Amino acid sequence: MADIRTAIFDRKTEASAETGEYLSASSGYAYPDVLVETDWVAEHLSDPAVRLIEADEDVILYEVGHIPGAVKLDWQVDVQDHINRDFIDQQRFAQLMNRWGITNDTMLVFYGDKNNWYACYSFWLFSMYGHTKIKVMNGGRTKWEAERRLLTREVPHYEACVYHAQAPDETIRVFRDDVIFGLKNPGRRLLDVRSQQEYAGELSPTAEYSHEEAQRSGHIPGARNVPWNSAINEDGTFKSAEELRRIYSCQDITPDNEVVTYCQIGERAAHSWFVLAKLLGYPRVRNYDGSWTEWGNIAGLPVEK
C-alpha cells in the first residue's frame, strides 16, 4: 500500500557512538539513553534489532498511519486482564512478545499520541516485566508528523520467536493499602498528575474520560498537584532537566523523598514516573496505577477537594 507521506528530513546531528541516540549534550537528564530522537528512528526503520511499538490513547490512529515497521499496542486489549482488573500475567506477556517477533535482546522504542502518554505507560509496564532494552521516541507522533516524516498503513509481519518473560517486578508499583499506610509518612510525597480541575474536584469524575469511572471527585489527602503535561514542550518533546527540576521542586517533589504518582487509572501517572525516575533520576518513585478510579470508588477512604 502506498505511503501516506514520503518526506524524510535529512538532519545531521552528532550521534553517540555507543547508543546512537541524538540528544543534546546539555539535556542534563540522569539517564539520557532512555530517549531517542526522530532522526535516530528514521535511520533505524530497517534495523532488525529494533522494534517500534506505537501505543496511543486513541487506538485507531495506528490504522490511520504509523511509522513503517511499527506494531500496534492496544492498551485496552493487549496488556489488560479485565477479569482481575490487572495487567496480563507473565505467560501472556511472553505470548505478546512472541507474536511481535520480539526476543529478549530486541531494542524496543515506544511512541504515541498525547505527548507519549501511553508510550511512557508502556515503558513503565515493560520495565516491570524486566525488558531492559527500552526507549521512548522524544516528541512522539506529534513531532514525527510535524516533521512530515514517513507514515504508512501497511501492517508489518514478523516471524514468531521465543521470548523468556520474567515474573513482574512490582518495586516500581504501589497498591492501595500501601498508599493508605503512607498517608501520615512525612517522607512520602503523593503526586496527583491530573489537571488542576480534576485535582480540585471541579470536574465530574467521568467528564473527560468516560472509561475511567469514579463515584467521587477530588484528590487523595495531602497530594501535591503537578499536571503530567507540565513536563512537555510545545513540540511534544520533554523539557530540559533544569526546567523539570524547577517545576517539581516548587511542589516539594524532590529526590530526597519517596514519590508516589497517580492519576485516574495510572497511565498519566506513568508518564510522570518516567520523568521523575528516568529523566531526573529520583531514586524512589512508584506508580499507583489503581489511582483515582480505585480510590474514588472505595467507601470510607478520605477525599480532599
Rank of each mutant, 00 (worst) to 15 (best):
I220W: 11
Q196C: 15
F110L: 05
Q80H: 09
W292K: 12
E267H: 13
P168Q: 07
T132S: 10
I180E: 11
I247C: 04
Y158K: 03
D78F: 05
P302G: 04
H82S: 11
I265T: 10
Q197C: 13
P283N: 02
V275L: 01
L52G: 01
L279D: 07
E159L: 13
E243C: 05
I53Q: 01
K135R: 06
T237P: 12
A146V: 03
W228V: 01
K12R: 05
G101E: 11
Q215P: 03
D74K: 02
A200F: 03
L61D: 10
K278S: 08
Q196A: 15
A277F: 03
P48N: 08
D113S: 01
V34C: 11
I60A: 10
W117T: 12
A30D: 08
P186D: 09
H66C: 13
D192M: 11
Y29C: 05
V59K: 02
K278A: 11
P186Y: 14
L190P: 00
G222Y: 08
N115P: 11
D58I: 15
A277N: 06
P283G: 04
R286Y: 00
S240I: 03
Y29K: 01
D252T: 15
R245S: 08
F87E: 05
V259A: 01
A223C: 02
H157Q: 14
E198Y: 01
V36W: 06
L151N: 09
A119K: 01
W75T: 15
V79W: 08
D78S: 07
L61G: 12
L108V: 09
K278N: 07
E243N: 05
M128F: 12
D86N: 13
R176I: 03
L150I: 05
S27D: 14
Y62F: 06
V155S: 12
E57H: 13
V109W: 11
G112M: 02
S217Y: 09
G112I: 04
A160Y: 15
H164R: 11
A30L: 04
T206Y: 14
W75E: 14
M107N: 11
Y209T: 07
V79L: 05
Y118V: 14
P221S: 09
V77S: 14
A49W: 03
A160K: 15
E234M: 13
G20Q: 05
S249K: 06
M128L: 14
Q197P: 12
G290P: 00
